[in-house]
Amino acid sequence: MEILNIEGAEDTPKIILDRTNGIFEISGRSLPEDSAEFYKPVLEWLKSYSGKSNDSTDFVFKLEYFNTASSKLILDVLSSLESIGGTTIQWYHHEDDEDMQEAGQEFSELVEIPFEFKTY
């Protein structure tokens, strides 16, 4: 499977989806002008991954900031992961960023996937 590798920018996150090496990570800032367009390749990648997923998928969210339009798409990403067995979400937040921790808690209440909360 092709690796999806998107370089981060000041308004878009860095994304690596690599089945072979078991790396699944979205990190940085997410406030793109068109969030649906930006996350489209991620959702498409996950769609094809769901048919041939690894035994376990540790999906890392290490976000510094995301806007409300991105939050809708993050939920779409989580919903796609819901159907992939063996998925765990590693939700990182900066140690003094309670709002980001709370955002992760809220997502965990919206989908049926185990979340692990970690600080960086």
Binding site: E33, S35, A36, T68, A69, S71, K72, L110
Partner: peptide, 30 residues
């Protein structure tokens, strides 16, 4: 506000302009 946020994020699709209808709710929460 937390409940409203969850209700909107679960039930809306993005508008043509790419808005999720969550902006004011998020501003009020912050």
């Amino acid at each position: 506000l937390k409940e409203l946020y969850k209700e909107i994020i679960k039930n809306t699709t993005l508008s043509e302009k790419g808005g999720a209808g969550l902006g004011f709710v998020d501003m009020a929460r912050k």
